[in-house]
């Protein structure tokens, strides 16, 4: 099904000197930017500063990789038709075999570029430090408000033994700050943390060890502002030795998204002009992302959520299995579209 020669040709084209030069230039340019610039963070919050730098570097490199991948894949059919049609269309090779082989070469090359990007980001960030890695995000009710004489309570099942929990809280009005206590109970054991909530604050709590469900309650300790819990702001985490995993977690989201975009753009380009194919791919992803935000079937749908965690000095969780299923479906769709169209434009 795959031609090694065609894979090699695609690999070579995807890692053309112009692509590597653009990558190097963008990487060089990112080293001149202070990514933690106007954040007003207190000095000494090294973990968050590293996180902000990681996010900034990744955003710059992602923009370059995304544009380069889309432009190259969307222009591929036009280049084939303009320069190599008489060879390709006469070959005793099915279009599907050619396209799958080309995509494999692209995917390998994109893997190399993403690994290079992760390596460059980690080199730029420098030393690592212990942090926590997200294990699972938990949905809370949409209007989880904590006001005077009210307490927010909920229970989670399947919580790992040594897990921590993070909760993002914000003020919903009625004052400038509020003091809250967040408590977790597991059987007879309980842990708690107390925090003063500003405009937006994250509380972290080591959960009681053991098995069984964990009950949470959140209450305001004194009169003050109304506090609201972010509906997507509760996460179970675990301590990790190094924050370098953040880049690999981003890479594990970006690579499937790039290879899916590559396949889709190839497929669209068989039927549309290069520019239209590029815009169609981008529009499809943007549309799906805006409509669902964190739908696990859409590759990279939680990219900005993951980048926000990276900026906070955390390590995002690994992509879900559904992420890979969605990627595979988009690749099949793209390559199927491309294979259905004859090389020659004349019907």
């Amino acid at each position: 099904m795959i031609s090694v020669g065609v894979v090699g040709l695609a690999w070579r084209r995807a890692l053309a000197p112009s692509v590597l030069l653009a990558f190097a230039l963008v990487a060089l340019a990112t080293t001149w930017i202070d990514w933690s610039g106007a954040t007003g963070l207190p000095r000494g919050d090294a973990q968050v500063l590293r996180g902000l730098e990681r996010r900034g570097l990744w955003l710059a490199l992602l923009a370059m990789l995304g544009v380069a991948t889309l432009a190259r894949a969307a222009g591929q059919f036009a280049r084939w038709r303009a320069r190599e049609l008489d060879w390709l269309a006469a070959l005793p090779v099915r279009r599907s075999r050619w396209l799958v082989s080309t995509w494999c070469g692209d995917a390998l090359a994109l893997g190399v570029l993403v690994v290079l990007a992760a390596g460059f980001v980690e080199l730029s960030v420098g030393a690592s430090a212990p942090t926590t890695r997200t294990l699972k995000r938990v949905e809370l009710p949409p209007l989880a408000l904590v006001a005077e004489r009210s307490q927010l309570e909920w229970t989670l099942h399947d919580v790992p033994s040594a897990a921590h929990a993070r909760l993002e809280l914000a003020l919903a009005g009625g004052g400038r700050a509020a003091e809250v206590r967040w408590r977790a109970r597991r059987g007879e054991l309980s842990t708690a943390t107390v925090g003063t909530i500003g405009l937006r604050t994250t509380l972290e709590l080591a959960l009681p060890p053991g098995d069984g469900p964990v009950g949470f309650d959140l209450e305001r300790l004194a009169p003050g502002a109304i506090v609201v819990a972010d509906p997507a702001g509760l996460a179970l985490t675990e301590p990790v030795e190094s924050d370098r995993g953040a880049s690999w977690a981003i890479a594990a989201r970006v690579w499937p998204a790039l290879i899916a975009a590559d396949a889709l753009a190839l497929g669209f380009a068989a039927w549309l002009s290069g520019a239209s194919a590029g815009f169609a791919t981008l529009a499809l992803w943007l549309g799906a992302w805006l409509a669902t935000r964190t739908e696990p079937l859409i590759p990279c749908s939680d990219l900005f959520d993951a980048l926000a965690q990276v900026a906070a000095g955390l390590v995002p969780r690994a992509p879900e299995f559904a992420h890979w299923v969605g990627t595979a479906a988009l690749v099949v769709l793209g390559l199927g579209l491309g294979s259905a169209r004859p090389w020659s434009r004349q019907p």
């Binding site: 031609s3 065609v6 084209r13 320069r83 049609l85 060879w87 070959l91 090779v93």
Partner: peptide, 23 residues
């Protein structure tokens, strides 16, 4: 064909090897 419709960035030996393999 009238023109040279082979991958032009390849060396002659590599392009001929690729074409022969595919044939």
């Amino acid at each position: 064909a009238e023109d040279l419709p082979f991958p032009r960035e390849l060396r002659a030996v590599d392009a001929l090897r690729l074409s022969a393999t595919l044939y």
